[in-house]
C-alpha cells in the first residue's frame, strides 16, 4: 500500500518543505550583540583563511568596516586552497587569502575579477625549547629546514593545501629538498588548521611553520617557542579578490567591491596597522606597494 518511492519522495519533500519553513523563522539572524542594526541585513560572504581568523584580525577589522558601510561581513574560514574553491563554486562573494600563485591562477581561470595585495605578515618557525635540531636563533630558514631533515627531527606539516602549507612547500624547495621524496616518519602531515598544527606540535615536540599572528594569539604554547624568524623568505603576502559576477551572477558585486576598496584604501590600511597583540603589530598593510 505504500511504495518505496512514495516513502523516499515524501521524506525528501518534507525535509525541503520543513527547511523552507525553518528558513522563514531562522533567516533573520538574532540581533548580534556587537552589531546594532536596523532593517534587513546587508551582508557579504567572504571566504578566508584559518590563520586570519585565528589571529583575531577580523574581530578588529570587521566592526570598523560595518560602521563605515553598514555591511555585515560573514567570514567562512578555511585553508587557502579550500577558500579559493569556495569562491570557485560561487559560495562566497570575496576571497581573502595568502598564496599568490594560487590567487593569480584563480583570476586567470576567470573565477575572480582582479587580485589586489592587502597586507603581509610573516611566518615563523616554531619548535620545542630543547631545540633537538639545533636551529635556534638562526635567521636562515632554508638552513634550518636542512638541519631538521638531516637529523630527522619531527616536523608537523599542515598538509591541507592552505596558504601556510603552500609557503612551507616553497621553503622546502628553496632549501633544495624534494619533500615528497624525502618525507619519512619524522614528517607528519595532519591535514588541519594552524591552531591544530600548533597543538599537535606541542604534544609531539615537533617543529612547525606558523604565521606570526596565529602564534601570538595561540594560548596553548606549552614548551613551544619561536626558533627561526626574520628571514625575508618568511614574508607572507595577503591578497583579496572579488568573485567574478560574470561566472556567478548572484555575487554581490557592489558590496563586495566596497569591502575590497575599503580594505586597500587608507582607512582599511590604517585599521590593519592598528591591530596589535601585546603591543606587537601583526599585519603590515602594503596595498600601495607595487609587485607584491
Amino acid at each position: 500500500m505504500l511504495g518505496k518511492r512514495t516513502f523516499l519522495t515524501a521524506s525528501l519533500g518534507l525535509v525541503l518543505g520543513g527547511a523552507a519553513l525553518a528558513q522563514a523563522t531562522l533567516t533573520a539572524p538574532p540581533p548580534a550583540p556587537a552589531q546594532q542594526q536596523t532593517g534587513t541585513t546587508r551582508f557579504i560572504t567572504v571566504s578566508s583563511t584559518t590563520s586570519t581568523t585565528d589571529s583575531g584580525l577580523f574581530n578588529h577589522l570587521l566592526p570598523a568596516f560595518q560602521r563605515a558601510s553598514g555591511i555585515e561581513v560573514r567570514i567562512v574560514s578555511q585553508g587557502t586552497g579550500q577558500a579559493l574553491d569556495t569562491g570557485r563554486r560561487g559560495d562566497a562573494d570575496v576571497v581573502f587569502v595568502h598564496a599568490r600563485a594560487q590567487e593569480e591562477r584563480f583570476v586567470t581561470e576567470g573565477f575572480g575579477v582582479e587580485r589586489k595585495p592587502v597586507m603581509y605578515n610573516d611566518f615563523v618557525l616554531i619548535g620545542p625549547r630543547s631545540d633537538p635540531a639545533g636551529v635556534k636563533g638562526s635567521t636562515n630558514i632554508t638552513a634550518a629546514l636542512q638541519l631538521i631533515r638531516e637529523r630527522q627531527v619531527p616536523f608537523v606539516s599542515r598538509g591541507d593545501r592552505s596558504g601556510t602549507h603552500a609557503a612551507e612547500l616553497n621553503l622546502w624547495q628553496a632549501a633544495g629538498i624534494d619533500i615528497a621524496a624525502a618525507k619519512g616518519p619524522w614528517y607528519r602531515e595532519i591535514g588541519q588548521g594552524m591552531g591544530a598544527a600548533l597543538n599537535t606540535s606541542g604534544a609531539m615536540g615537533a617543529y612547525v611553520l606558523a604565521d606570526r599572528a596565529t602564534w601570538l594569539n595561540f594560548r596553548n604554547r606549552g614548551d613551544l617557542e619561536i626558533v627561526v624568524e626574520g628571514d625575508r623568505r618568511l614574508f607572507n603576502q595577503y591578497g583579496v579578490i572579488l568573485v567574478n559576477p560574470a561566472r556567478h551572477p548572484h555575487v554581490k558585486q557592489a558590496d563586495g567591491q566596497r569591502f575590497i576598496d575599503w580594505l586597500v584604501g587608507p582607512e582599511g590600511q590604517r585599521v590593519i596597522a592598528d591591530y596589535k597583540i601585546n603591543g606587537e603589530q601583526l599585519f603590515f598593510p602594503n596595498a600601495t606597494q607595487p609587485g607584491v
Binding site: Q192, G193, G195, A196, N199, T214, N220
Partner: peptide
C-alpha cells in the same frame, strides 16, 4: 572546535 584550534583549551 575553533577555541581548541586557537589553543584556548
Amino acid at each position: 572546535a575553533l577555541e581548541t584550534s586557537k589553543g584556548d583549551l
